[in-house]
Structure formats: structure tokens, C-alpha cells
Design a protein around this nucleic acid. Sequence first.
DNA 1: ATCCATCGGTGACAAGATCACTGAACCGGC
DNA 2: GCCGGTTCAGTGATCTTGTCACCGATGGAT
Lengths: 221, 221
Amino acid sequence: MTEWIDRFPGLVALHAPVRDRLVASARVIEVPADTVIFGPGRPPENLLLLLDGQVRVQQIAENGREIVLYRVHSGESCVLTTACLLAFEDYTAEGIAETDLRAVAIPRASFDEAMSTSPEFRRFVFAAYSKRITDLFLTVEEIAFGRVDSRLAHKLLELAGDRAVVPVTHGNLAAELGTAREVISRQMAEFQRRLWVEQKRGQVTIIDRPALEAFARANPI
Amino acid sequence: MTEWIDRFPGLVALHAPVRDRLVASARVIEVPADTVIFGPGRPPENLLLLLDGQVRVQQIAENGREIVLYRVHSGESCVLTTACLLAFEDYTAEGIAETDLRAVAIPRASFDEAMSTSPEFRRFVFAAYSKRITDLFLTVEEIAFGRVDSRLAHKLLELAGDRAVVPVTHGNLAAELGTAREVISRQMAEFQRRLWVEQKRGQVTIIDRPALEAFARANPI
DNA sequence: ATCCATCGGTGACAAGATCACTGAACCGGC
DNA sequence: GCCGGTTCAGTGATCTTGTCACCGATGGAT
């Protein structure tokens, strides 16, 4: 059961001593869905490597409005928190378990030691940073310049994965896109009128995926 | 002339050997204004620590629209590029010298070595990351939820510093805020009507700073 | 002086945000 | 079952912002 490390392609290149020390100090933890993992006042204690489940990282404004910044999926790490973890600065964002999680928790000291001793570990960490940062830049571009209908179509397909039923409220979707609930309601009504989706309270069902995908393709970003 | 290192508070704590090796491998470079320092196709070669001048980092969409992500000021480092620097991923953003620059260039190998040997250097790097990332999160929030008039007022004051004359075009300001030039034109016309600013081609002069500041204070973010 | 690129202004209209409600759906407890 | 509270969704009115299509002004450069 120490072979969680094979789930992270960037870590398989670690040399044996580094790998062993990391495995020895890490603990596999389980976290129930909807737990706030870190946030203002709850600084992250560990570097988390997600084995199962996903984490939603969102920014919350003073007026209570929310915007989803990014998600961490299984096989990825909550790496942006490490900056704050090591710099002792506090995050304005919060991380929430969207599902039950199984994750590897690497304590601050072990993280620091691995950063010190292993070029491969540094590569792993910086590659994760790099991905997150370029993603964030694209998010900024999308919010600034993208159209709501196009972004909503993409987001629905993303949230659906290969399933048809997406368990989200209009309010959730508004937070995903950084817009207002009413805007989502009107846009979803239009998608429904076109018979692309059906709606129930707290749930959207994609009933014409090809059409939705065609629309998404025709309206990139 | 090796005492550039004292310009970076986070680096004064470096132990002598680390410090000396860093100083030995680094070169002070000068870059003329408007140089593209890194960008798609021009991956960053070095970690830059800015001694004088400032760098604008912006994202460019396919349709040509731009949005300013953040600025690096003197005494700061282009640290987000290090992720891409070490991960060999390419950036979708570009960095432009807004003024003539004087900067310390730390080669990739020296950066990696310092990360390896010095906890203090790691702290320096992660603290810089932390600041940038939390700033980016605030930028996202601002773009998603902020009003243009308020954001424009803040941006004008920020760009002005303690001077009254700000050499920007309406197009520049639009890119700063991720909005359209026409929107800036109309909003600036309103500020002018209120006698807060005067305008010339490519230049804005703040003529009633107290009023502009009061407006900015009354409309946070 | 003339040419030309850039910059700024404007009207009309579309899209999105906000406000103020309303009713519907769901979830507990009784 | 029924009730009551809460969350969710729908809608009209209104304001702000974004887009499109233009035009004229400005300030170099030759």
C-alpha cells in the first residue's frame, strides 16, 4: 500500500532514497465530501496529492459572490497551496472537497526536504505550478473576453464528463463562470428551448449532446 | 558592485556560500524599453531580479485582445516564469519591458542549485510565488465582479503614482482592465466632465486627485 | 506640406448585470 | 399526510458594459 507514488507520473523518476523518505513521512488521508480543506484562517498544513476525488478552489468576494478558480483532480496536487504553505502567507481562496477524497498528505518539512534533495521532485513541483498558472491565465482571458453562452456550453460538457446528468444548480453554474444566477437561468432557458438540455431543480440533463458539442466547437473559449 | 543582492530583502538572509555562488553566476543585464523579454516562442532563459524598471506581463488572445495580468516592479522577481523555466512548458503570456531595465539574470542551473542548497532561497522564491498568486486571484475577482468606473479610477491612481500626468492611451487602459476601448473612452469622458482629469492624445492628467481618490475609496475593488 | 498610422469620439444596438419580486420544489418535523 | 422554512428557479424593468461601424482628429515621418 505504499505504491500510491506510482499514481503520479512525475514522481516515478524519484531516486530510491528520496522516494522512500517521502513515502515514510506521508500519510494517506480520507476526507468526506464538502469539507473545507483550506481557506482564510485554515492555512494548508500539507501538500496534498489527490488519489481519488476532486477539490474545487474558489475565491470568495466580500459581498459573498464566488468564483471557481480551478479544480484539482485525482492524480494532481494542490501545488499552488505550497507557495502559501512555505511562505506562511494566507490564501484568499478556499479549497473544498467536492467528493469524498483519498489523498496523500506530505508534511511541510518533508516537502521542503524533497525540494532540497531531489531535482526530480523540483521538476514535479514546478511542472505542476506551470500547468496551474497557464490555466489560470487562460481563465482570466476567458472571463474577460468570452461570451456566456459559449462558456456555459463548455462548462456543462466539462462537468458532465461522459454522463448526461449534471447535478448543479443555476447558482453553482454562475459561480463557475463568475456571472450572475439570473444570467444562467436565462441562458439555460434558451438551451432548453433548443432542446439541448432538460432541467430539474438542481440538475441539468444533456439530451442533445451532439448539438451542444457543435455549438461549443463553433464558439471556442 | 556585487551588492545588488541587498536590494532583495528576502535574500539578505542567505548564507555566505550560497550568496557568493549566486553572485558569481549572476550577471547584471540592461534591457531597453519595449523589449519582449519572454513570450510564446521566447521561453525565459533566466530568473530575472529587477533592479530598476518594470515589466508588464500580459495575456494575448487569438483575436488580438490583450489583458494585463500583473507587473513586476524593481525589487521583485519574474518568479512565475521560473515554473515554466524549470518545467520547460511554454507560456501563453508575454513579458514586456515597460521602461529601460537593469536586472540580475540568474541562470537556470544556479537557480536550481540555490533551490537545492538554501532553505532561505526556497523561502524567497515561494514567498514571491505566494504574492503573485494571491494577486492573480484578486485580479480574477476584480474582472469578474468589479465595476469599470471604480476599476478605472483605481488603475489611474496606480499608474500615476505620485505624478499627475499618466502617459497612456485609452487602448492601454482597456488592456489594463480587460475591457474595450470604447468603454474607456466613455468613462474617461465622464471623469473629464466631472473635472477629475484632463485628456490629451496618449495622456491623462489628474487635476482633482482628492475627488478621484474619494471616488476610489467609495468604490473598493 | 502631405501622407499615414494611431488615437479618440459617437450612435445604435446586443449582451450581461442588477434589483425586486414571485412562485415552485424540497426537506425536515409533527 | 400537512406545515413551514429554505433553497432554487423564473421574470420584468432598468442600468451597465460590450460590440460594430464609422469618422474625424492628431501627430509623426518623409
